[in-house]
């Protein structure tokens, strides 16, 4: 991504002046899409988050107040926020570990087999999110293969739906492809002889990863964390279907505020908070990565 943004101005400079207008014209559709579908709705939500709510009909009444944000400090909301952050962090961690191992495995297979393995990772991604979630209900629910196999083996098993485990499994399944791809991309760029060199120099599996592969795929790892952590904060279907809806996430709360409580300003405020949290986490992760690379440079010096 950074490469394309870096080359764009260079190309603009090289282009003759009469081409500039055409360039802007070509940009227009993209700009229109972003303005109409991203910036305008976001501005509407931002405005609503400061509005007074209509206690009788729902909807907004205009005006300006900080009340909507202040009310979010209520322990009930704070707890949901904390739980969401925790679940997002847990999912990001699980996806990172599984995704890293999978990416390493795929990148070390013979070149002609790698595309097939990647396809296997992508295929679930092409299915609808809801379908995938329901699939887990069937797999882990009563009468499903998990219960039957466990009982056949003599274990006293019962349905795993609803449970935290089912939520985590389903989240992992949903986000694994986006965790695998960035790491795979960085690993592909690593000279395969480095692995042999490391083992030749006495490094075992863990040392090879800790000293060579993890540092060299750090950018991919960072992207992978962001691409799993941030979207998990906005998830709301999975906890309802597989977690029994007892522990709502921020996403569920926003849906509830908008639809059941008909309190649009508070829903909007909550949305803005989530947005800020997402941006903050992106900033924190990028910052950590930068710090890490500076530290490794210093240590080397």
């Amino acid at each position: 991504m950074s490469a394309s943004t870096a080359t764009a101005p260079a190309r603009g400079l090289r282009a003759p002046a009469r081409g500039t207008l055409l360039g802007y014209l070509l940009l227009l559709p993209a700009v229109a899409v972003i303005v109409l579908l991203v910036i305008v709705p976001m501005a509407v939500i931002a405005r609503q988050s400061f509005a007074l709510s209509d206690p009788l009909l729902g909807g907004t009444m205009g005006g300006f107040t900080w009340d909507n944000y202040a009310k979010l400090f209520d322990p009930v909301y704070a707890k949901t926020m904390g739980y969401s952050l925790g679940l997002a962090a847990l999912n990001a961690a699980v996806c990172l570990v599984v995704g890293y191992l999978l990416a390493f495995y795929i990148s070390t297979r013979p070149a002609n087999r790698q595309p097939v393995l990647l396809m296997l990772v992508i295929i679930p991604f092409l299915t609808d999110f809801l379908v995938r979630t329901f699939a887990w209900i069937t797999l882990l629910g009563s009468g499903g293969p998990y219960v039957r196999i466990a009982r056949a083996l003599g274990f006293d098993a019962s349905s795993l739906v609803p449970s935290q485990f089912a939520v985590i499994m389903s989240l992992l399944y949903a986000f694994l492809p986006v965790a695998v791809f960035p790491i795979y991309a960085s690993m592909r760029a690593i000279d395969p002889s480095l692995r042999e060199a490391a083992s030749d120099l006495g490094a075992g599996w863990w040392q090879t990863h800790r000293r060579i592969f993890i540092p060299l795929s750090a950018t991919g790892i960072g992207s992978s964390i962001m691409l799993t952590f941030v979207p998990t904060l906005g998830v709301f279907v999975i906890p309802v279907l597989l977690g029994g809806g007892k522990d709502p996430l921020v996403g569920n709360l926003i849906v509830t505020l908008f639809t059941e409580f008909r309190n649009e300003p508070m829903g909007a405020a909550m949305s803005m908070v989530v947005l800020v949290l997402m941006l903050a986490s992106v900033a924190v992760i990028t910052g950590l990565l930068r710090l890490l690379s500076i530290r490794s440079n210093r240590r080397a010096a």
Partner: peptide
Amino acid sequence: PTRQRDLNMLFQSYALFPHLSVYENVAFE
């Protein structure tokens, strides 16, 4: 296994660790 054999190899591509300094490359083992 290779890592326990009392030998080292000089790779054709050198296989130096790109993120490590000269000092750390040599110090690796």
